[in-house]
Deep mutational scan, measured.
Amino acid sequence: MDVFMKGLSKAKEGVVAAAEKTKQGVAEAAGKTKEGVLYVGSKTKEGVVHGVATVAEKTKEQVTNVGGAVVTGVTAVAQKTVEGAGSIAAATGFVKKDQLGKNEEGAPQEGILEDMPVDPDNEAYEMPSEEGYQDYEPEA
């Protein structure tokens, strides 16, 4: 019985440690998101679009440190934060509304985080759909 109880105690310690790591990862992701939003706020009209992409990228980098179902929630929060940063930029006159959601080359930025393969159960990952990809044929 002692062996059984000791095993359960060790398992509990492992769960607590994993929860603490997840909590730490979420806190880091939130900190990076805040950094990115402050970065966007300090940019001029020309830099705002690039700044919004930076927020998304920093958040995406930190999301990889967070495991399990938390990833889905962090990704949703990050996307809403990026959308909010863009709205703030438009409201303050840093950028025109028609410039939001495009990178410096004018290509749409939507789907940055949505296409990231995420499995809350950590069982399997699927690649994003290939609808947006084109076949590449090298020139002879």
Rank of each mutant, 00 (worst) to 15 (best):
M1Q: 00
M1K: 00
D2N: 15
D2V: 01
V3N: 04
V3W: 04
V3S: 05
V3T: 01
V3E: 01
F4V: 02
F4L: 08
M5H: 00
K6R: 09
K6P: 00
L8N: 00
L8S: 00
L8M: 06
S9L: 14
S9T: 04
A11R: 00
A11N: 00
A11M: 15
K12E: 00
K12S: 04
K12I: 06
K12N: 01
K12V: 14
K12A: 04
K12Y: 14
E13H: 03
E13T: 09
E13M: 07
G14S: 10
G14F: 14
V15G: 00
V16L: 12
A17Y: 03
A17K: 13
A19V: 12
E20W: 14
E20Y: 14
K21S: 07
K21F: 14
K21Y: 11
T22P: 00
T22I: 13
T22M: 14
K23D: 00
Q24H: 14
Q24I: 13
G25K: 13
G25N: 05
G25Q: 10
V26T: 01
V26R: 00
V26C: 08
V26E: 00
V26G: 00
V26S: 00
A27F: 11
E28Y: 05
E28W: 06
A29W: 14
A29I: 13
A29R: 04
A30R: 02
A30I: 07
A30K: 02
G31A: 03
G31L: 13
G31H: 04
G31I: 07
K32Y: 10
K32A: 14
K32F: 13
K34M: 02
K34V: 13
E35M: 15
E35Q: 03
E35K: 09
V37C: 07
V37R: 01
L38P: 00
L38R: 15
L38Y: 11
Y39C: 05
Y39K: 09
Y39E: 01
Y39G: 04
V40H: 02
V40P: 00
V40A: 03
G41C: 10
G41T: 13
G41V: 14
G41F: 13
S42K: 11
S42H: 11
S42V: 12
K43M: 14
K43I: 12
K43C: 06
K43V: 12
K43Y: 06
T44F: 14
T44L: 12
K45A: 04
K45F: 13
K45H: 02
E46M: 15
E46W: 05
G47Q: 14
G47T: 13
G47E: 03
G47W: 11
V48F: 03
V49T: 08
V49E: 02
V49Q: 09
G51R: 06
G51W: 15
G51M: 14
G51C: 14
V52H: 01
T54W: 12
T54Q: 05
T54G: 07
V55H: 01
A56M: 07
K58Q: 03
K58D: 01
K58F: 13
T59R: 01
T59D: 00
K60N: 02
K60A: 01
K60I: 14
E61M: 12
E61W: 15
E61T: 07
E61C: 07
E61L: 10
Q62N: 12
Q62H: 11
V63F: 04
V63S: 01
V63L: 14
T64M: 10
N65L: 07
N65T: 09
N65D: 03
N65W: 10
V66R: 04
V66M: 11
V66Q: 01
V66G: 02
G67M: 12
G67P: 02
G67A: 15
G68E: 12
G68C: 05
G68L: 10
V70A: 05
V70L: 15
V71E: 02
V71K: 06
V71C: 05
T72A: 15
T72V: 05
G73N: 08
G73F: 09
G73H: 06
G73L: 12
T75H: 13
T75D: 02
A76E: 04
A76D: 03
V77P: 02
A78L: 12
A78E: 01
Q79N: 07
K80N: 04
K80H: 11
K80D: 02
T81S: 07
T81P: 02
T81I: 11
V82Y: 08
V82E: 02
V82T: 05
E83M: 06
G84V: 14
G84A: 13
G84E: 08
G84W: 13
A85F: 07
A85L: 14
G86P: 05
S87W: 15
S87Y: 14
S87R: 04
S87P: 04
I88G: 02
I88Y: 15
I88N: 03
I88W: 07
A90T: 06
A91H: 11
A91C: 11
T92R: 05
T92M: 03
T92P: 05
T92D: 02
G93C: 06
G93Q: 03
F94S: 06
V95N: 11
V95A: 06
V95C: 09
K96W: 13
K97W: 15
K97H: 11
K97D: 15
D98A: 09
D98L: 15
D98T: 12
D98Y: 03
D98H: 10
D98C: 08
Q99M: 14
Q99R: 07
Q99G: 12
L100E: 06
L100F: 03
L100W: 02
L100N: 08
K102V: 03
K102E: 11
N103I: 10
N103F: 10
N103H: 11
N103Q: 08
E104T: 12
E104I: 07
E104L: 09
E104F: 14
E105P: 04
E105Q: 08
G106W: 09
G106T: 08
G106N: 03
G106P: 10
G106M: 05
A107N: 07
A107G: 14
P108W: 05
Q109D: 14
E110M: 10
E110L: 08
I112L: 04
L113V: 04
E114D: 13
E114G: 14
E114K: 13
E114P: 06
M116H: 12
M116Y: 04
P117M: 09
P117Y: 07
P117R: 04
P117E: 02
P117V: 13
P117F: 10
V118E: 11
V118I: 05
D119A: 14
D119N: 03
D121F: 07
D121Q: 15
N122S: 06
N122D: 10
N122M: 12
E123V: 07
E123L: 06
E123Q: 10
A124C: 14
Y125I: 11
Y125G: 11
Y125C: 09
Y125M: 04
E126H: 08
E126D: 14
E126N: 09
E126C: 14
M127D: 04
M127P: 03
M127S: 05
P128G: 05
P128V: 06
P128A: 10
S129F: 09
S129K: 06
E130M: 09
E131Q: 07
G132V: 08
G132Y: 09
G132I: 08
Y133I: 04
Y133A: 06
Y133S: 04
Q134K: 12
D135C: 08
Y136M: 14
Y136P: 13
Y136A: 08
E137L: 07
E137P: 04
P138W: 10
E139D: 13
E139W: 08
E139M: 08
E139Y: 13
A140T: 06
A140I: 04
